[in-house]
Design a binder for these strands. Structure first.
Length: 99
DNA sequence: CTACTGACTAATG
DNA sequence: ACATTAGCCAGTA
């Protein structure tokens, strides 16, 4: 069993706790589950469709090019504006480790 | 085994 | 604010 399968459920569970209208980063989830951000990204790339994947963005608020179009729509629906492919983390970001 | 890739990040200029 | 760089690490060929 690879490392990805071992942490997948933890990652997806963490993503599921992100409130509507809020976003967090790959790194924030990674720290929570004790893994690196790239592994978090990989989990979402394979099983992200099971959860609200659009609430996970990069540490600087930007969104991967292949996702930005759909994420803009989905985030906009819940009150998170996306400008120039990025969200304002100071306004809508949360750190799952904090609370 | 090596080499390359990627839904990343922090530091630097 | 933007571009570059090194570090990262599981997966794939």
């Amino acid at each position: 069993m690879g490392a990805l399968e071992e942490v997948a459920d933890s990652v997806l569970l963490a993503v599921a706790t992100i409130p509507e209208g809020r976003v967090t980063s790959y790194g924030s989830i990674g720290r929570l589950v004790g893994r690196g951000p790239r592994l978090v990204a990989r989990v979402l790339a394979t099983r992200g469709d099971e959860v609200c994947w659009w609430r996970v963005v990069r540490a600087d608020g930007s969104i991967a090019p292949q996702l930005v179009a759909e994420a803009t729509v989905l985030l906009g629906r819940e009150g998170v504006p996306v400008r120039a492919g990025r969200v304002d983390l100071r306004r809508h970001g949360i750190d799952l480790a904090d609370g």
